[in-house]
Nucleic acid binder design. Structure first.
Lengths: 240, 240
DNA sequence: TTGCCCCTCCCCATTTTTGGGGAGTAGAAA
DNA sequence: TTTCTACTCCCCAAAAATGGGGAGGGGCAA
């Protein structure tokens, strides 16, 4: 059951050489067979849906997931979004009614009872999950995840690296950077200060501050200040 | 020069068992000796400074870095912030005057000419760097980084996992969830709509909408709507 | 040198948001 | 069953943000 170093090497190499989503799909299927688990999934988590995902879930489940916007209630997504370390599905919060319903439907669509998901984050707020899923008892699963934790982290990392390659918009350079003063302004707005307070704190006039805000809004293509803050945050231009 | 699997295992285990920054510091020193490089550094990159860092740079350099707010001009930080994959310092943009000056000063403080940095991201926009630094020629360095790339990624991951453990504010939990309508409201605000537009889109009165926004603001402990959006985003309650 | 971007300051009027109050329905949890 | 939360609607006045204009000094790069 364990992946030997050689196996891992060859699989990662295959992944590195793949030049399309189809290539990633083949690698993930090979990995699934290798580990002998029910499912293996890499998916880019995004409000637009998992367009950059690949994995072994059925198309029906994938479609169902999108149709029902399960993204918003899936405890795996919610939980992983708050964590850095890989997490066993059992440790997530399944207490809400919606979550229990979700789990029931998932099972009907062939999702196994055990899961282990690794959150991965890229630049500009990119977020993805790499998930191993199977049906087995708790002890077997604990053994599996413990044995393969490190390999899985590495695999997740390589998958995300590949996925980012295929997403040109995520490549650096495209977006206009904010000037230091613009960053200051947006950051202070994001933490709740009013314009008057910020101007005072930055020791500039409120008018000057407005120029920064408007300039940032323009650079970010935002419709208003709140939108600009949201964009700056999701692009990783400011840290709150 | 290569880390064998056993060595890596024992070092990661030592890291897992450390329960303080001092423990991380000891591990990083052991790793540095092990790899035989000039410096090894993990540092949490933050507008407040690298309070959660550990590594082998001299105190003088660390202080200089903070005093001069090199964070804002350091091409390593800037470059890694835009990337997902580990990056060789040679591939970064050192063309600006400030960057060249920075490199000169760094060398004076004992920073080697070769560097390899791994960006790591956690929840809520957390961002850290794991850096290997040495003085040698390009070929030697290329060989070193290629051989150790995967191990270094894993080590970086484990260091960050540890650092997050020591930062209680980054732990999930204790926060009140938003109701579905509140999520709708906050999400639409975050993407730039005005209250009138949102009320129209959700087919509710603007007054009702206001109740949701205020309720969300209260739950999030936010000072105003923009602040609430920022908090909701950084807590992963809404996805934009 | 010239051009470009960043930083700084100021005016106006209009639109939007905010603060604080009250009240009824329905569905879910205890 | 009771209680609680979510959802929906309404008033008013004050505070804040927005839109769009103009203008000068400084630094850095081609």
């Amino acid at each position: 059951m364990l992946v030997t170093l050689d196996n891992l090497e060859s699989l990662l190499s295959a992944l590195e050489q793949s030049d399309s989503l189809e290539g990633m799909q083949r690698v993930i299927e090979a990995l699934r067979a290798h580990y002998g688990v029910a499912h293996l999934v890499y998916h880019w988590v995004d409000s637009r849906g998992d367009q950059y995902g690949c994995g072994t879930y059925s198309d029906a489940w994938r479609q169902k997931y999108l149709d029902e916007t399960y993204l918003r209630i899936d405890p795996v997504v919610q939980g992983c979004y708050q964590r850095f370390h890989p997490v066993d599905w059992k440790r997530l919060d399944w207490s809400s009614k919606a979550a229990r319903e979700f789990a029931k439907v998932a099972a009907e669509y062939g999702v196994g009872n055990q899961g282990f998901s690794i959150p991965i984050r890229g630049p500009n707020g990119q977020f993805a999950l790499f998930t191993v899923n199977d049906t087995c008892d708790d002890r077997t699963w604990a053994g599996f995840t413990q044995s393969n934790r490190r390999d899985l982290i590495l695999i997740a990392h390589y998958f995300n690296e590949k996925a980012l390659e295929f997403e040109p918009a995520r490549q650096p350079g495209q977006q206009q950077p904010l000037s230091p003063r613009e960053v200051d302004a947006m950051t202070l707005i994001a933490v709740g200060y009013s314009r008057a307070q910020i101007a005072d704190r930055l020791s500039i006039s409120e008018h000057t501050l407005r120029v920064y805000i408007e300039s940032a809004r323009f650079k970010l293509g935002a419709l208003n200040t709140t939108h600009a803050v949201a964009r700056a945050m999701s692009r990783g231009l400011i840290v709150v």
